[in-house]
């Protein structure tokens, strides 16, 4: 929440000029689209007769109806208390979304049949590849951040080279480089470790910056107090600075994890059977790829939502020492 005023201002969606403008915009929008040939046209049949024959009158009637429903909806929601507003809007968007999927005429039995395998093989692989990678990436990030903040030229140079290089290359390229390049040096690594390595190195580079700014956000006074008590660098870092930097670091790290979850699909190019790989292969034979893609999309979404929830819990946990 932003900083709310204590004086309630008039609800914008109840101002006549806003409603008028919104109505006009929606009307124009749907007039431009010809919806007579769609389900909408069928629904309006009692009013406009045969939708295909109805011409401009039919088009206008449809657009008008949609605009009225939309504005009414918005105005009514405006009366609801905040929590209810949020719930209603979520629900409506979700329904619209489902209606959109409905238009694909997906085969639900096929989805039901493939879903268990997508979860036991795909989701599990995606999750463990991402989870291992984020742990390694965090370790790299701590080292990288400390090196970047250090006065040791050697460490600084390595850290800046590393972040610049791995942030500068597309992740897909890194996956190829590691999978194909490492065998040249005598390390033949399998697809899964190669994928984990690529993800860790890439995200480690991004997270180095997150950790660096997190560490820098801690007041100098904490270092001074620590040092004046005789704590060494490692102790100060582990016990004083990092625990305080975590609340700053965790939200963007959560974002990184969510985006890693999806970027882990790139390791499908080296033959890891994770969710994206299965989404592309399972429905291919029977031309039911849309089913699989949408199921995978939903699974990714659900995983992200879970991560968001976990993230907010952790944030909540760290907010504890801030309450007065």
């Amino acid at each position: 929440m932003l900083y709310p005023d204590t004086v309630e201002s008039e609800v914008i969606v109840h101002k006549p000029w806003f409603i008028t403008a919104m109505f006009a915009a929606i009307l124009a929008c749907f007039l431009a689209l010809n919806l007579t040939g769609t389900t909408m046209g069928e629904l309006m049949r009692p009013v406009i007769g045969d939708p295909v024959q109805s011409g401009f009158y039919g088009r206008f009637a449809i657009a008008f109806t949609i605009a009225v429903i939309f504005c009414l909806n918005v105005v009514l929601i405006g009366f609801a208390p905040l929590k209810l507003q949020i719930a209603i809007v979520w629900l409506e968007l979700l329904l619209l979304f489902l209606a959109f999927f409905e238009t694909f005429h997906l085969s639900l039995p096929f989805i039901r049949e493939k879903l268990p395998f997508m979860i036991t093989q795909g989701v599990v692989t995606t999750l463990y590849v991402s989870a291992i990678s984020i742990v390694i990436a965090s370790a790299i990030a701590i080292l990288g951040a400390v090196a970047k903040l250090s006065t040791n030229g050697f460490a600084y140079a390595i850290a800046t080279f590393y972040t610049s290089f791995f942030r500068g290359l597309p992740l897909l390229m890194q996956v190829y480089l590691i999978y194909l390049g490492l065998p040249q040096l005598g390390f033949v690594i399998d697809a899964v470790p190669a994928g984990i390595l690529a993800l860790s190195l890439c995200y480690g580079a991004y997270m180095t910056e997150i950790f660096r700014s997190g560490i820098q956000s801690i007041d100098r006074g904490q270092w001074e107090a620590s040092r004046s008590m005789g704590f060494g660098f490692g102790l100060t870092m582990r016990k004083v600075i990092l625990p305080q930097a975590l609340p700053v670091i965790i939200p963007p790290t959560g974002n990184q994890f969510i985006s890693m979850l999806k970027d882990s699909s790139l390791v499908s190019v080296i033959g890891v059977w994770e969710l994206m790989f299965l989404a592309r292969t399972l429905g291919q034979k029977t031309f039911q790829h849309m089913e699989m893609l949408i199921s995978a999309a939903m699974l990714y979404w659900i995983m992200s939502i879970c991560l968001e929830l976990i993230q907010s819990r952790i944030e909540h946990h760290y907010a504890r020492s801030k309450v007065r």
Partner: peptide, 20 residues
């Protein structure tokens, strides 16, 4: 230096307690 610092207490203007 740590052995000197542990013998010298310091109190700062802004307290610098560990907030966590």
């Amino acid at each position: 230096v740590a052995s000197v610092r542990r013998n010298v207490g310091m109190v700062f203007q802004h307290f610098n307690l560990f907030p966590h």
